[in-house]
Design a protein around this nucleic acid. Sequence first.
DNA 1: CCGGGCATGTAACGCGTTACATGATTCG
DNA 2: CGAATCATGTAACGCGTTACATGCCCGG
Lengths: 186, 186
Amino acid sequence: MAVLGALSVAPMTGYAVREAIRDVLGHFWSESFGQIYPTLAALEERELVRRADRAAPYELTARGEVRLRELLAEPAQRVPPRNGLMLRLFFGRQLGPDACRQLLLDAKAEAEEQLARLAAVRAVVAAEDGPDTPYALITLSAGEHTARAALAWAEESLAALLGSSESDAALSRADRPGAAQSGEES
Amino acid sequence: MAVLGALSVAPMTGYAVREAIRDVLGHFWSESFGQIYPTLAALEERELVRRADRAAPYELTARGEVRLRELLAEPAQRVPPRNGLMLRLFFGRQLGPDACRQLLLDAKAEAEEQLARLAAVRAVVAAEDGPDTPYALITLSAGEHTARAALAWAEESLAALLGSSESDAALSRADRPGAAQSGEES
DNA sequence: CCGGGCATGTAACGCGTTACATGATTCG
DNA sequence: CGAATCATGTAACGCGTTACATGCCCGG
């Protein structure tokens, strides 16, 4: 779907498809390098893409356009979530408050970098003003909302982690003198 | 890491590990069913988990605890993004504004459901108040921030999509009378 | 003329999912 | 006693990533 979509914008070589996916769709999609050419070969065999002659860029056929619209209309299957950062924070007691704070600082920095990248992309996209621009802005906005949410979350969580533990060990020890049971038996 | 982490909370059967991952870590982690038992077998062979006897629940060994902390301390490798919704919206012109609006409505509804689910989880977690509670709240908060961001984005994008096109075809046609070039050649 | 980017592949390997298979226990 | 749930596995298959391999072309 991504390859057909890239070729729907303009004919291009496989190499350019890869760069387009990385540079344009990069903030929400990725294709591994060794995936592009087998995909293009399969698409060519099914006559969804064509090369005018050998060494010409790939271009979409009429059937390819139809197929792209079919694929886009299919419901997006949700991918099972796998967030390593959250897993580490959830078991943060094993890791210690210091390491958790570092994870949150890293996440915050990454969100800020992402916002900067997206701002740069936005400047480029906003200057184009083609028929695809509104849609590009929608996906861009999603990235920005997500990054801002991550930023706010990281700051809020850093504050929470500092506030509830003055020393590093406070979270590891029981801070309720009268309570000896730890939640281990639930 | 997820399996060791689950067992670090309490000894349990493989079946219970699966349910714990689904129910407790579900909003940021998942393990396929057929993954649990091979993993437990491998962990048992490496003496990171043990069963008191056959048909007893698995429990973490001392080495298993050490290994868990090692794994948690490893840097989280980022997964290449693959967001099917964004891909569809990016090529939204092929799909048509109506279908895009439906995608956004679905995304909005899903974000609202997610917020409701997380609110229910929050009620349970907040009532516990164990040593792991602050960390559980951090991951929970991340889910809430993300869901609220998705909700706001969907509403904002729906408004943008309605505002810029009074009829369904407006986005497909050129709305700038004097401009014939389309961005296809970039 | 030589190094780096353009361009096109391939092959191995691993991981994870899906589906299948089986028995025990519990509850109505 | 039958159905549903608990519980433990296995095997096939596919997908995708990583790494490797090769040649062209252009600019310094």
